[in-house]
């Protein structure tokens, strides 16, 4: 170790007090945001995989995506995938390990209240999603994407999707062992990527299966975004309703069952 130094005087006399809540939340959110951006595995999940899928399937005819241009179908699906990767998979794994390593407990001993910590996590998730959306949109535009529709509806869909995925991500992180969360969150990511209408259209599935798959949060988000961005709809009713139900259920379950240690 470096020799401890007494050259810098430390005033150790007690001067306790909490910082204002908004400052604490901003500080924690900034920390979480930076932590995601320098985590290689998280970036693979949140940026690299979505962008590669977007570029690969837009530029090639590997998939039969029906009438219309491929990128117009793919871009909304990839945006939905981006939301799921951050709000659900990344948040579940990150929070699960924080719980396992006693980070949540330790933060619980600081003046930052639990509600403030959840608020900070939400802000960080939304900020990461903004980065993802910017990158995905830039790549899609470069591939010839022509988005339509009302940006307000897009924002409402993205936020409701974030709430739904966050609820279940936190539920998983707060109830399962960290290793189980890691495995399950990645499995769910792959499964929902495959059957949630992200890049493979749901109309390729038989009717009854399709009816069930449409009730998944990822399908609702992808279809809702397509309704707006591809077809110019405003506030698509069914996807919003499906997402609202998932959000209410997930957040209620997480609030009820989340264990902090």
């Amino acid at each position: 170790m470096t020799a401890p130094s007494k050259t810098v005087p430390l005033d150790l006399s007690p001067a306790p007090g909490a910082a204002p809540l908004p400052r604490m939340i901003a500080s924690q959110a900034g920390y979480e945001f930076r932590a995601v951006l320098r985590n290689g595995e998280q970036l693979l999940l949140t940026l690299i995989i979505p962008v590669v899928l977007l570029a690969l399937f837009s530029a090639t005819s590997l998939l039969d995506l029906g009438a219309g241009r491929r990128v117009d179908f793919l871009a909304p699906g990839i945006l939905a995938l981006a939301v799921m990767s951050t709000a659900f998979t990344g948040q579940a794994i990150g929070t699960g390990f924080e719980r396992r390593y006693g980070v949540l407990k330790r933060l619980g001993a600081t003046p930052l209240p639990r509600g403030g910590l959840i608020g900070a996590k939400t802000l960080s998730v939304v900020a990461v999603e903004a980065v993802q959306a910017a990158v995905v949109c830039a790549v899609a535009l470069a591939l010839g994407w022509h988005p339509h529709g009302d940006p307000g509806s897009v924002v409402v869909l993205l936020l409701l999707g974030t709430a739904a995925f966050s609820g279940f991500g936190l539920l998983m992180a707060g109830t399962l062992r960290a290793e189980a969360t890691l495995a399950a969150a990645n499995l769910v990511y792959i499964l929902l990527l495959a059957v949630g209408g992200v890049v493979f259209p749901l109309d390729k599935f038989p009717g009854p299966v399709r009816d069930v798959l449409e009730l998944l949060p990822i399908s609702a988000l992808a279809e809702g975004l397509r309704d707006v961005l591809q077809h110019g709809a405003a506030l698509p009713g069914k996807p919003l309703l499906v997402l609202a139900v998932w959000a209410a259920a997930g957040l209620a379950l997480a609030a009820r069952f989340f264990k902090w240690e």
Partner: peptide
Amino acid sequence: SFHAAPLG
């Protein structure tokens, strides 16, 4: 940063 008058 969670505290009002922290040490340096």
